[in-house]
């Protein structure tokens, strides 16, 4: 009988460069032999494997994926610790791309606001890079990035360049800030919600959000105050993900596998899902 092949086969990704970023975050660039990952869309993810240790889901961080892909990784536990011990020239495994990312085709011709909290900047970066590569296809573009402390800012240099461009409006906010070499208008003390209030967002904006689970509820409230509809709000959700392909059950919420139906969901599509603590819809059911 014809046997089919495993869906769990990673391909080898050789580490081309490692750039230390703020705090415990490194930006890894991997080079692969195939162009399997070139299909990566903003907001999708890959399963990153450190042989002998394990796998974890990591968002595609670059808007242009060719034979090389950038991943921003925070050192938090077993797999990420092991990855941080690796050097340029070593290889790790990569499987993907998986899931539904941000619906860039749908955003075309419209105004777009991107909201990132903390490490949520990783998938949001793939989106802004994509948008700026196809800038003429989009209307007004706003980026709001919040963090706890200004020294946690990731992609500082790239953000400086964005601040100089006239075609994207960037708001940066930290709960707590020390003296910062960014222009004072750009870096403010406050939360992403304060920035949303300041930004010229109205009902005809599409909004893409990624951040810690607790952030979403407040962001959604603020967007509603600006009359942004549930159809135009897109959330990237984190869940434990072992397989990435709708088999292992770890990412199940409501009736769906987050790894396949998400990780990016339209808010309108998330009504009545229990344990969805990211928005108030959780409550009763």
């Amino acid at each position: 009988m014809m046997q089919i092949s495993t869906p769990f086969m990673p391909e080898k990704g050789v580490i081309r460069s490692i750039v230390p970023m703020a705090q415990d975050n490194y930006l890894f660039e991997f080079k692969t032999d195939t162009d399997r990952l070139a299909a990566c869309k903003p907001g999708q993810f890959v399963e990153l494997w450190v042989p002998g240790v394990g796998e974890c889901p990591i968002s595609v961080c670059s808007g242009r994926v060719t034979e090389s892909i950038q991943l921003l990784v925070r050192r938090v536990g077993r797999v990420t610790n092991a990855l941080f011990q690796m050097s340029e020239g070593d290889w790790a495994g990569l499987r993907g791309p998986y899931g539904h990312g941000f619906p860039v085709e749908r955003y075309k011709g419209q105004n777009l606001c991107m909201v990132a909290g903390g490490l949520g900047i990783a998938p949001i970066r793939s989106l802004w890079q994509y948008v700026l590569d196809h800038r003429q296809d989009f209307g007004k573009v706003i980026l709001i990035y919040g963090m706890r402390h200004s020294d946690e800012m990731l992609f500082r240099e790239e953000l400086k360049l964005l601040l100089q461009r006239g075609d994207i409006h960037v708001f940066l906010a930290a709960d707590d800030a020390t003296v910062c070499e960014l222009p004072p208008f750009a870096m403010q003390v406050g939360r992403v919600t304060d920035m949303i209030r300041q930004a010229a967002i109205d009902h005809d904006f599409q909004v893409a959000i990624c951040g810690p689970p607790v952030m979403y509820k407040y962001v959604i409230e603020e967007l509603k105050a600006k009359h942004v509809t549930d159809q135009n709000i897109w959330l990237s959700l984190e869940r434990q993900m072992k397989c990435g392909i709708g088999k292992c059950g770890h990412c199940f919420i409501g009736g769906r596998f987050t790894c396949q139906a998400g990780p990016v969901f339209q808010l309108a599509d998330l009504k009545f899902v229990p344990e969805l603590i990211e928005c108030d819809n959780g409550g009763a059911q």
Binding site: G52, V53, G54, E55, C243, C248, G249
Partner: peptide, 26 residues
């Protein structure tokens, strides 16, 4: 019930090993 975990079992020399799937429970 179909849920599983994927785990690595490394050999003692650390350079080889296998990836295994094991039943898991919600």
């Amino acid at each position: 019930c179909y849920c599983f975990d994927l785990v690595d079992i490394a050999s003692l020399n650390g350079t080889s090993g296998e990836r295994r799937r094991e039943w898991d429970s919600c």
